[in-house]
Nucleic acid binder design. Structure first.
Lengths: 251, 251
DNA sequence: CGCCTCTTTGATGGCCCTCAATCTGAGTGG
DNA sequence: CCACTCAGATTGAGGGCCATCAAAGAGGCG
């Protein structure tokens, strides 16, 4: 039987987020935005980037601030949250190494529309939006890679729309758990651990539901042996079982 | 008092969709995907494109078919619909001249995930996905324009997610009507007419609601003098009034 | 060990879906 | 031109899912 009280400590805060210059160079070189660039070109790009370390829980960007930066997650994980006027937050995405947030050099966008919060300690690489635009112009391969990534994000967003429009909560939660496990899962004695501290509120904000509802759904999943969970951690135990609930659109 | 029975005929099916070669050249030249290209470059691009006319109601692409084309709307309007296994369709977008659909040359995507249906008679320009990828590589300006457009679509999708997650139906409907009016509105004696034939079912599929619910909401809006509507047509009368319901995130 | 936040569980109510019947108006063929 | 036909739209009654309100339980951190 799965114990709810976890004897284990699902440590998600790895200290990999130590930003050094050579580390930055390496991160940028691996960044999917810059695939296709020569070593020399990456070096040119690097000069325009700066870096900053954030502790888990820190705000990296706040909705309403002037949108001047384009940032790339170097190490660690962040959440992108759109606050609404009635206090109902919407968690749009969880981003890991190589993914971007901030202004994509769109002209009209005067200010950020999302909060970005560090889920783990992390290292953020950033540059001026105009600089990034210039990079894209100078290095067509970068523009193509970026396009590819944004297109993938768009597809993900459209899947979210499908789920929110058409499916009940348990299905949305199940699907979300599987996505999270695939993206940031780590093998662990309790199961396939989602290796980032997420509260029930976070899951609720990702699925368009309320904390209490998510808690009920997860309790049910737990009773059925599909997951193990505790305070700010969840592990997937029965992938197939969850996939049955999520429906047939999973990887 | 606003009459429900409209003496007027809100004709949306204009015959502009007559595809001729010089017309195609003009449409491509104006396409936001190709802004920044020289006249000669546009001509080069044109050679890889073909065109086809569709009548209102025709399927242009079907979910499940192999994803081999990238299409651009030359003239007219289409709807992008994602069918789900339980028959609940999700209307992801309505696209007009200059917008694209189909494969964006993503490698993994073996088959389309959406139906694309002509809302009006329309002219579709299309090319092989690989060709389009090649165009993007050859003409960096095109890649940048495309990136810009896809980024804009992503922001739109994220707004949809916000609405579906956090707001009640009347608000989603109101917001949708305002967006539609802004995108495809036309001044008319009944008000600001949404110049494309959309059924209640379409509105329902756009807002993640059911036909009956949308009908009730629209009836309410009508009684309050906010809109005029009839069989497959809606006109916005009181923009401010709708904006009050939609909340403060409108253009 | 105690505090505080996160989580869980219960009771109640409302929004929206479901089912069903009627109404309307656009297109068709006589 | 008109009656017919049928898809689309409207309206009502009832029920279910999920939000809301409320309170107790549990894990982490000092």
């Amino acid at each position: 039987m799965v114990r709810r009280h976890s004897p284990i400590t699902p440590v998600a805060l790895r200290s990999a987020a130590h930003c050094s210059i050579p580390e930055q160079r390496k991160l940028l070189g691996q960044s999917p935005y810059l695939t296709g660039l020569t070593e020399d070109e990456v070096n040119q790009v690097q000069r325009t980037f700066q870096q900053q370390h954030y502790d888990a829980g820190d705000f990296i960007q706040k909705a309403g601030e002037p949108a001047i930066r384009l940032s790339i997650v170097g190490a660690g994980f962040v959440k992108v949250v759109r606050p609404t006027m009635d206090g109902q937050d919407v968690l749009l995405d969880i981003l890991g190494p190589g993914e971007h947030f901030g202004s994509l050099a769109e002209l009209g966008d005067a200010s950020y529309r999302e909060d970005v919060v560090a889920l783990t300690d992390c290292c953020i690489l950033y540059t001026n939006a105009d600089n990034f635009h210039e990079i894209l112009q100078r290095f067509p391969a970068a523009a193509l890679s970026t396009l590819e990534l944004v297109a993938a994000r768009l597809r993900g967003a459209q899947s979210s729309i499908e789920h929110l429009s058409a499916y009940p909560v348990d299905r949305r939660v199940s699907s979300t758990l599987l996505h999270l496990a695939a993206k940031i899962g780590r093998v662990h004695e309790t199961g396939f651990l989602i290796d980032v501290p997420l509260s029930r509120q976070d899951i609720a904000d990702m699925t368009g539901a309320k904390v209490e509802t998510v808690s009920r759904v997860l309790s049910d999943f737990r009773r059925r042996g599909l997951i193990a969970s505790g305070r700010r951690w969840i592990a997937v135990i029965d992938r197939e079982g969850l996939a049955d609930i999520a429906g047939s659109d999973m990887p």
